[in-house]
Lab assay of single mutants.
Amino acid sequence: LKKVVALYDYMPMNANDLQLRKGDEYFILEESNLPWWRARDKNGQEGYIPSNYVTEAE
């Protein structure tokens, strides 16, 4: 899975979204639905995130 790091905080707009915290790492599960990607956080929560809020992890 592709790993990304959040560049900004993101508060979910609806139940399908995943909250982002700046500096945290996330795994990308699906990239087909631009600009929204399906992601999983370190706690196993899954949801959609804005792809322009993250960058690929080193």
Rank of each mutant, 00 (worst) to 15 (best):
L29C: 05
N43G: 08
R21T: 14
F27A: 05
N52D: 13
E30K: 06
I28Q: 02
K22N: 04
E58L: 14
F27T: 11
P12I: 04
D24A: 09
L1I: 11
A6V: 02
L29N: 02
V54A: 02
D9H: 05
M11G: 05
E46W: 07
V4A: 04
E31P: 07
N52L: 09
G47R: 01
K3P: 04
R21H: 13
L34G: 15
I49G: 01
L20W: 01
G47I: 01
Y26P: 00
P35F: 15
D17M: 14
K2A: 04
R38E: 05
A15H: 12
Y10Q: 02
A57L: 14
Y8W: 12
N14E: 07
M11V: 12
P50F: 08
Y53M: 11
P12W: 02
K3S: 06
L18Y: 01
I28Y: 01
Y26C: 02
N33E: 15
L7F: 04
Y26I: 05
G44K: 04
R38S: 07
N33D: 15
S51N: 06
D17A: 11
Y8K: 12
I28A: 03
L34M: 11
G44I: 01
W37I: 12
Q45N: 15
A39N: 00
F27W: 15
G44L: 04
G47Y: 02
R40Y: 07
E46R: 03
K22F: 05
R38G: 04
L29E: 03
R21Y: 11
G44W: 04
L29H: 03
N52V: 09
P35K: 15
V4H: 03
E56C: 11
Q45E: 11
R38F: 15
W37E: 03
P50S: 05
L1K: 06
R38C: 10
S32A: 09
G44V: 00
Y53Q: 05
I28F: 02
Y10F: 09
G47L: 02
W37N: 03
V54C: 03
F27N: 04
D9P: 04
D41W: 01
G23K: 03
Y8H: 11
I49R: 00
F27M: 09
M11W: 14
P50G: 03
L20F: 02
M13R: 15
A15K: 13
W37G: 02
Y26L: 07
E25D: 06
A6C: 04
T55V: 14
L20V: 04
A6T: 01
G47V: 01
L18H: 01
S32C: 13
Y10L: 05
N33Q: 10
F27S: 06
Y10K: 04
R38L: 15
A39F: 02
E25P: 08
V5D: 01
L34S: 15
E31Y: 11
L18D: 00
L1M: 11
G47D: 00
F27G: 03
D41P: 00
S51G: 07
Y8D: 07
W36E: 09
S51W: 14
L29F: 06
S32V: 08
K22I: 07
N52T: 12
E46M: 06
L29T: 06
K22A: 13
L1A: 07
Y26G: 01
T55Q: 12
I28N: 00
N14R: 13
G47T: 01
Y48F: 12
N52H: 14
N52K: 11
K2P: 05
N52M: 11
Q19P: 14
A39Y: 01
L18V: 03
E31R: 09
M13T: 13
L7R: 06
E58C: 13
V54K: 00
V54R: 00
K22Y: 05
Y48Q: 07
G44F: 05
V4W: 07
N14P: 02
G44M: 05
P50T: 03
D9R: 02
S51I: 09
Q45R: 14
N16G: 15
E58D: 14
A57D: 09
E46F: 04
S32D: 09
V54E: 01
S32H: 08
S51L: 06
A15I: 11
N16P: 04
Q45T: 11
Q19E: 14
E25T: 14
N33V: 09
G23N: 05
K42C: 09
E56I: 13
E56N: 11
K22D: 02
M11E: 14
L20Q: 00
E58P: 14
Y10V: 04
N16H: 13
A6F: 01
E56H: 10
D9T: 04
I49C: 02
N33K: 12
M13A: 11
R21S: 08
Y10W: 14
L7V: 07
E25K: 07
G23P: 00
V5F: 08
E46I: 10
I49W: 01
K3W: 08
K42L: 10
T55K: 13
D24N: 07
P12D: 02
A15F: 10
R40D: 02
P50V: 03
D24M: 09
D17C: 14
W36V: 13
N33A: 11
E56T: 11
E56Y: 13
D9G: 03
R40W: 06
E31I: 11
M13W: 07
P35M: 15
Q19W: 08
L29Q: 03
A6Y: 01
K2G: 04
V4K: 03
L29Y: 06
D24C: 12
K3N: 04
A39W: 02
L20I: 05
E30S: 09
L29M: 07
D41M: 02
L18T: 01
Y10E: 00
R40F: 06
Q45C: 13
L18R: 00
Q45L: 12
K22S: 07
T55Y: 10
R40S: 06
V54L: 05
L7S: 04
A6H: 01
S51P: 06
S51A: 14
A15Y: 11
P35E: 15
E31V: 11
K42I: 10
L18K: 01
W37C: 07
Q45Y: 12
E58Q: 13
L20N: 00
N14W: 10
N43T: 09
D24W: 13
Y53T: 03
W37F: 09
E30F: 08
P35R: 15
Y53S: 06
V5T: 10
W37T: 06
D17R: 08
P35T: 15
V5P: 00
N43F: 13
A57G: 10
Y48M: 13
M11I: 14
R21M: 09
G47N: 00
D9M: 03
N52A: 14
N52R: 10
N16A: 11
G47H: 02
R38T: 10
M13K: 14
E46N: 04
M11L: 14
E58H: 12
E58A: 14
W37R: 04
L1R: 07
G44Q: 05
M13Q: 14
E56M: 13
Y53H: 07
N16Y: 12
R40V: 12
A57E: 08
F27H: 07
W36M: 15
K3Q: 06
E30I: 06
A39M: 04
K2S: 04
V54M: 04
Q19C: 10
L7K: 07
P35H: 15
V4R: 03
P35W: 15
L20E: 00
P12T: 05
E25V: 15
A39T: 02
Q19R: 12
K22W: 05
W36G: 07
L29S: 03
A15N: 11
I49Q: 00
L29V: 10
S32R: 07
L34P: 15
Q45K: 14
S51F: 14
M11R: 08
N14Y: 12
Y10S: 03
E56V: 13
N33M: 10
D41S: 08
T55G: 09
Q19V: 08
R40P: 01
S51R: 12
L34C: 14
P35Q: 15
Y8S: 07
A15E: 13
N33L: 11
R21D: 05
Q19G: 10
K2F: 08
E30D: 15
V5S: 04
A39R: 00
M13C: 14
S51H: 11
P50L: 10
Y48N: 09
L18G: 01
K3F: 05
M13H: 11
A57V: 15
E30L: 06
Q19S: 08
A39S: 03
K42G: 09
W37K: 06
E25N: 08
E46L: 04
A6P: 01
Y10A: 03
K3Y: 06
G47C: 02
